[in-house]
């Protein structure tokens, strides 16, 4: 039981980070971005490429792990570089596709375009990297026993998983500070709330849109690397997470960053706890059940505003 909760929270933190990006593009650009999952995949694979590059640059043979973790400094550097590149990728796709469609055409056309962009991005990645799964590190990790086996089945967790949980918490706090105290953060919240009014008060909506893409993509890259670190890196990584991301964003209430985090953790827990009930093969359908339930009961989400 405790083990399932711990596993759920780890998956949930990956979903949370991705869902923040979904909810941001949804509230600021006003469309459901089906290509967001691919930003996670690209982030994970770009980090893999940078990792190879940095390790070769160091010239000291394979990556030396830090302390109990399976990875070393090169992976953290690769994560930063991949986040930057993923942000550039998001801006490129926006410039090539979404910006042109925003000019004329309705929000729903953007959804179709994002669906097309998702398949194109995933298959381009598959063309470049192939389809075989990969790993950042082949180090074998010993799980730490946090709770003994006789207390509710016990709980074991690897140092990498603890790292993912801690860094997710740090990221969310940083994002909270940014949105609450900086001018750009306040402008973003204003635009999400009422774009016409925000424009009238002199907010540069283009800058806000750029910021939303950059933040969404950076968080997506982090989530992708976390997923690669705790599970494995494969071309379907982001696409398979898309449904949980949407479920989390809607569960939390579109536009609410804290809602997305809470939604992500709940969906992660629900997925993990569903395994003993329905079996592992239907795990991916749990997010769908959560989604249907929230749409029927409270479509504005837990933290959403009533429209």
């Amino acid at each position: 039981m405790l083990q399932l909760i711990a596993d759920g929270l780890i998956v949930g933190s990956v979903i949370s980070l991705g869902a923040i990006g979904v909810t941001m593009t949804y509230s600021i650009l006003r469309f459901a971005n089906f290509a967001h999952g691919e930003l996670l995949t690209w982030g994970a694979y770009l980090a893999l490429t940078f990792l190879g590059f940095f390790v070769a640059l160091g010239g000291a043979g394979p990556m030396q792990p830090i302390g109990p973790f399976s990875f070393g400094w090169p992976l953290l550097a690769a994560l930063a570089a991949a986040a930057l590149m993923t942000a550039l990728l998001a801006l490129l796709v926006d410039w090539l596709l979404f910006e042109r469609l925003r000019a004329h055409g309705t929000a729903i056309v953007l959804v179709i375009a994002s669906f097309g962009a998702a398949l194109a991005m995933r298959n381009l990645l598959q063309f470049i990297y192939g389809t075989l799964p990969d790993y950042y590190s082949r180090e074998i990790q010993i799980a730490i026993r946090l709770v003994p086996r006789d207390v509710m089945g016990g709980m074991r967790i690897t140092p990498d998983q603890l790292f993912v949980l801690a860094l997710t918490a740090v990221t969310v706090v940083l994002l909270h500070l940014f949105l609450t105290y900086t001018t750009l953060g306040k402008a973003m919240r204003a635009t999400a709330h009422n774009p016409a009014l925000a424009r009238l008060t002199g907010i540069d909506v283009r800058a806000v849109i750029r910021a939303a893409w950059i933040i969404g993509a950076v968080l997506a890259a982090i989530a992708g690397v976390f997923s690669g670190l705790t599970v494995q890196i494969r071309p379907g990584l982001g696409f398979d997470l898309l449904l949980p991301l949407f479920a989390a964003a809607i569960l939390g209430g579109i536009g609410s960053v804290y809602g997305a985090v809470a939604g992500g953790l709940i969906v992660g827990l629900a997925e993990s706890l569903s395994v003993p009930l329905f079996g592992a093969e239907y795990r991916a359908a749990t997010a769908f059940l959560v989604l249907i339930a929230i749409l029927l009961v409270r479509p504005t989400g837990l933290f959403g505003e009533r429209s």
């Binding site: 729903i108 959804v111 949407f246 991916a284 359908a285 769908f288």
Partner: peptide
Amino acid sequence: LRHDYLAITTFGVAVTLQL
């Protein structure tokens, strides 16, 4: 509900039916 909720729900249906 809002238009794009149908998009997300039908996407979920397809994923679930695939499973």
